[in-house]
Design a protein around this nucleic acid. Structure first.
Length: 436
RNA sequence: GGAGAGAUGGCUGAGUGGUCGAAAGCGCUCCCCUGCUAAGGGAGUAUACCCCGAAAGGGGUAUCGAGGGUUCGAAUCCCUCUCUCUCCGCCA
């Protein structure tokens, strides 16, 4: 692994490869429209702007080459003591300097315009992604377990408040809505799930990490939270930090500006962190109980892989996340997200939704995504291929898993009519008890 | 928080205005020699972008923590910022 120095000046940051856009404009436009963008004119604009940029760069490079040659000649003459001849060349040089300066200013502004356009172009969906506009167009990839429907089952917030397991009111007092306290056995259950998920991940080849919970602006940009999802994050303006909305941000940025040897791939990391999300605009039944919080716990999985492996890796990641739900014995379904519902940065995405028998609805507990080279390009995360050339790696991530909705479903699915909650087999060693 | 020192290529580390993208050593790759568990000789070994070329390859520009300035010319001089280390203070 090689650490390169600051290879990501902002004006060079791109998301899709400009060369790829240039060569496949129609493909990129179609992808953009399928993802629900209103128009795809940014594609033509960026190609035109890039053309302009390249012409300017060529001009500047030529002028600089001339200027460098003159400076070298002066150096040589000075060394030989021919001061007058040197002075003659110096006198001739003035004008080209001004011209270069002028062009440099121009190229900087053109580069910025080009970059702005480039940022607006989303990743191209994979061929296997269904074209669609809303969540209704998502395809059910598979389902597992029985979707129970029994009248006596209570929603988790009723059970939890009855048992004094989760205190939303005091959470509101101490911090605000969406910041609950977990108490007693429920705190223990959280800890049990975190340990279970981390142990499963490390047993499956993931390297465990503990990460910073605040990141700087470059990192937020690297994984695409900026400018795409800036409003999702809490900020610490005084120190210029962003509070992480997911461990994906610090973990993926861990290798920013690095070049790997091909044999070092794939890299697999897992990290437990709390996640903070502003969730502006949410309301109603969506935010009831544990359904949507401003702070929640999650174990995240991140893979950095060879481009040829990423399709397969996404399936492995999905199967791994599904295996956790099976071990917890929680019925779920897996959705293949349609083009319009999958987000700006992904090429393909699966959502895992667990069945909530107390609420009679599906709750998303994991999202497994392939980003292709999109994030990698932004972060300059590369490897040296067999020809010795540097190439962008592919990145994937997935939740494995997010806790609150697991807890919700688990409480509701495992409640007995006597009012107990049965602990799933795999969690018993962590809980030290059969039921709570 | 106070005081000081520093930031050069994968690593160590030279270089205080002129053929410096950067000495030397280490590491790594390839070749040669030898033949014995180790050594010797040679060559190569940063990243990004632009131009030419079908390609192989060739030409050019930029980068010595980041940004700006002085100069015909900056790793070297000036300014701002960031980070690291040492000492003091504080602290889980």
């Amino acid at each position: 692994m090689t650490l390169t120095k600051k290879t990501t000046p902002k004006q060079l940051l791109s998301m899709l490869d400009i060369a790829f856009i240039r060569e496949n404009p129609e493909l990129v436009k179609t992808g953009m429209l399928n993802k629900g963008e209103k128009d795809a004119s940014a594609v033509d604009s960026v190609i035109a702007k890039d053309e302009e940029w390249r012409e300017l760069v060529t001009q500047i490079d030529r002028l600089r080459a001339e200027s460098n040659a003159r400076a070298k000649e002066i150096g040589k003459l000075m060394g030989q003591g021919k001061k007058e001849e040197a002075q003659q060349i110096i006198d001739e040089t003035g004008k080209s300097k001004e011209r270069i300066k002028e062009l440099e200013e121009k190229v900087a502004s053109v580069a910025e315009e080009r970059q702005e356009l480039l940022y607006r172009i989303p990743n191209v969906p994979d061929d296997s992604v269904p074209v669609g506009s809303t969540e209704k167009d998502n395809v059910v990839h598979s389902t597992w377990g029985e979707q129970t429907d029994e009248d006596w089952r209570l929603p988790h917030w009723e059970i939890a408040s009855e048992k004094k397991w989760i205190d939303f009111e005091r959470g509101s007092k101490v911090t605000g809505a969406g910041f609950p306290f977990y108490i007693g056995k429920m705190a223990r259950l959280q800890r049990a799930l975190i340990n279970f998920f981390l142990n499963e991940a490390t047993a499956n080849g993931y390297t465990e990490m503990q990460t910073p919970y605040f990141v700087n602006e470059d990192s937020a940009r690297g994984t695409g939270q900026i400018p795409d999802k800036e409003d999702m994050m809490y900020t610490i303006p005084r120190d210029g930090f962003f509070v992480i909305p997911t461990a994906e941000v610090p973990v993926t940025n861990f290798h920013r500006d690095e070049i790997f040897e091909e044999k070092e791939l794939p890299l697999r990391y897992t990290a437990y962190t709390p996640c903070w999300r502003r969730e502006a605009g949410s309301y109603g039944k969506d935010v009831r109980g544990l359904n949507r919080l401003h702070q929640f716990d999650k174990v995240e999985l991140v893979n950095i892989v060879h481009p040829e492996q990423s399709d397969r890796e996404l399936e492995l990641l999905r199967e791994y996340a599904e295996s956790l739900l099976k071990k917890l014995n929680l019925p779920f379904r897996t959705l293949l997200m349609c083009s319009g519902d999958m987000g700006f940065t992904q090429t393909k995405k699966y959502d895992l939704e667990v069945w909530s028998p107390g609420q009679q609805r599906w709750l998303e507990v994991s999202s497994c995504s392939n980003f292709g080279s999109f994030q990698a390009r932004r972060m300059q995360l590369r490897f040296r291929n067999e020809k010795g050339k540097t190439e962008m790696a592919h990145t994937l991530n997935g939740s494995g898993l997010a806790l609150p909705r697991i807890v919700a479903a688990l409480i509701e699915a495992n409640q007995t009519e006597a009012g107990d909650v049965i602990i799933p087999e795999v969690l018993k060693p962590y809980m030290g008890t059969d039921k709570i």
